[in-house]
Lab assay of single mutants.
Amino acid sequence: MFKRLMMVALLVIAPLSAATAADQTNPYKLMDEAAQKTFDRLKNEQPQIRANPDYLRTIVDQELLPYVQVKYAGALVLGQYYKSATPAQREAYFAAFREYLKQAYGQALAMYHGQTYQIAPEQPLGDKTIVPIRVTIIDPNGRPPVRLDFQWRKNSQTGNWQAYDMIAEGVSMITTKQNEWGTLLRTKGIDGLTAQLKSISQQKITLEEKK
Rank of each mutant, 00 (worst) to 15 (best):
M173Y: 05
Y72V: 01
T38F: 15
V68T: 08
P15C: 11
T206P: 14
Q36T: 13
D191M: 06
I190K: 01
G189D: 11
I174F: 08
E209K: 09
I137V: 13
L56K: 02
G182T: 13
N52G: 03
T175E: 03
Q202L: 06
K177L: 07
Q202C: 12
T175N: 04
T158A: 05
L76I: 13
S172G: 07
N141H: 10
K198H: 13
T25A: 09
R4I: 15
Q107N: 15
D32L: 06
A92T: 11
E122N: 14
V70E: 12
T175L: 10
Q62E: 15
A88H: 09
R41F: 02
N44A: 13
D54A: 09
I13K: 01
T158G: 07
L16F: 13
Q46D: 07
Y164C: 04
A75M: 00
E99K: 04
P66H: 05
K102T: 15
D54W: 04
G182C: 11
P66S: 08
P145W: 11
L42W: 02
F97A: 05
I174P: 00
G182H: 12
P27C: 10
S201P: 14
L56Q: 15
F39T: 03
D40P: 15
D149Y: 06
R147Y: 04
L184M: 12
P15T: 14
T206W: 11
Q203G: 11
A19K: 04
M31T: 02
E99C: 15
K71F: 01
E45P: 02
V171K: 00
W181C: 10
R4T: 13
A96I: 15
R98W: 04
L125Y: 09
A85G: 09
F2H: 02
P121Q: 08
P53T: 12
Q24T: 11
A35I: 15
A163T: 12
A195L: 14
G192W: 03
A18M: 15
Q62G: 09
L185R: 12
N44E: 15
I200Y: 06
G79H: 04
K210H: 13
W161P: 01
L148K: 00
N160R: 10
P124V: 11
L78Q: 07
E208I: 13
G159M: 14
D61S: 09
Y55H: 09
L101R: 04
N26W: 05
P145M: 07
Q162H: 08
P144H: 06
T116R: 15
T194C: 05
Q103F: 13
K154D: 02
A163Q: 15
R147S: 03
H113T: 13
V12Y: 15
R186N: 02
Q151N: 06
S172F: 00
A75T: 01
A195N: 07
A18I: 15
G126S: 12
L101T: 15
F94A: 07
P87K: 07
N26I: 08
Q202M: 09
T183K: 14
E63Q: 04
D32N: 08
A168S: 05
F39M: 02
Q89C: 04
L42N: 04
Q46Y: 13
Q46S: 06
P66N: 10
M6I: 10
Q89H: 05
Q69C: 01
P121D: 06
I190L: 05
I167Q: 15
L207D: 14
V171C: 05
L64T: 05
P132Y: 03
L65F: 15
A73T: 04
A22E: 12
T25K: 05
R90K: 14
Q123P: 08
G142T: 08
Q24V: 12
K3S: 02
M111E: 01
G114T: 09
G142W: 11
I137P: 05
D40Q: 12
M173Q: 02
K3I: 04
R41G: 05
Y82E: 00
K43L: 09
A18V: 12
L78F: 04
Y164F: 14
N52P: 00
V68K: 01
Y55P: 03
G74C: 03
K29H: 09
D61Q: 14
K102Y: 15
R147K: 06
V77A: 08
R90C: 04
L184K: 06
A19P: 04
W161V: 04
G142H: 11
T136H: 14
R143D: 01
K204H: 12
Q203N: 05
D61A: 10
F2W: 09
N26A: 05
Q162L: 05
L5D: 01
K198S: 09
G114E: 07
I130R: 01
S17W: 10
Q80I: 07
Q69K: 02
A110F: 14
Y55V: 09
D32P: 13
I174D: 12
K83I: 09
S17D: 13
M166E: 01
E45H: 05
A9D: 02
N52A: 10
D149L: 04
R50H: 12
L64S: 00
I13F: 12
N155F: 01
L197A: 14
G106W: 03
A85K: 02
L101M: 15
D191G: 08
Q48Y: 08
Y93E: 04
R186C: 04
T129V: 07
A73W: 01
F39D: 01
N141D: 06
N52V: 05
A110I: 15
Q107W: 03
V146L: 10
D139Y: 12
T136R: 13
M7Q: 04
E180Q: 03
L125S: 08
T86E: 13
D61P: 00
Q115V: 01
H113K: 12
Y117A: 03
T194V: 05
L197G: 02
A22M: 14
A88N: 10
K37F: 13
G189Y: 03
A18P: 14
L78E: 01
E99S: 10
L30M: 13
Y112R: 01
D32V: 05
I138K: 07
I59W: 01
R41T: 06
Q151P: 07
Q80H: 09
P140S: 12
P27T: 07
D127H: 05
R57I: 15
R143C: 05
L109N: 08
D191K: 03
Y28Q: 07
I13H: 03
V146G: 08
G189K: 05
K102L: 10
S199Y: 09
E45D: 10
P47W: 11
L207Q: 07
K71W: 02
Y82D: 01
L30D: 11
V12F: 15
I200R: 05
G79W: 00
M31G: 02
K198C: 08
K43D: 11
E209A: 14
E169S: 05
R98K: 08
P15S: 14
R4S: 08
P15W: 09
K3H: 00
P140L: 14
K37E: 06
K83C: 02
P87I: 09
L56D: 03
A22G: 13
R134L: 03
T25C: 12
I133T: 08
M6V: 06
T183H: 13
Y67G: 05
R153T: 00
R134E: 02
V135P: 00
T136W: 14
T20V: 11
V70I: 11
R4D: 06
Y81N: 07
D23Q: 11
V12L: 14
M6Q: 00
L148M: 13
D191N: 05
Y82W: 08
G74Q: 02
A96R: 04
N52S: 11
Y105G: 00
P47H: 13
Q123W: 09
A120P: 11
A35F: 06
K211P: 12
A88M: 11
Y72W: 03
A75Y: 00
K102W: 12
R90F: 01
I138G: 14
L101W: 15
Q162Y: 05
P53A: 12
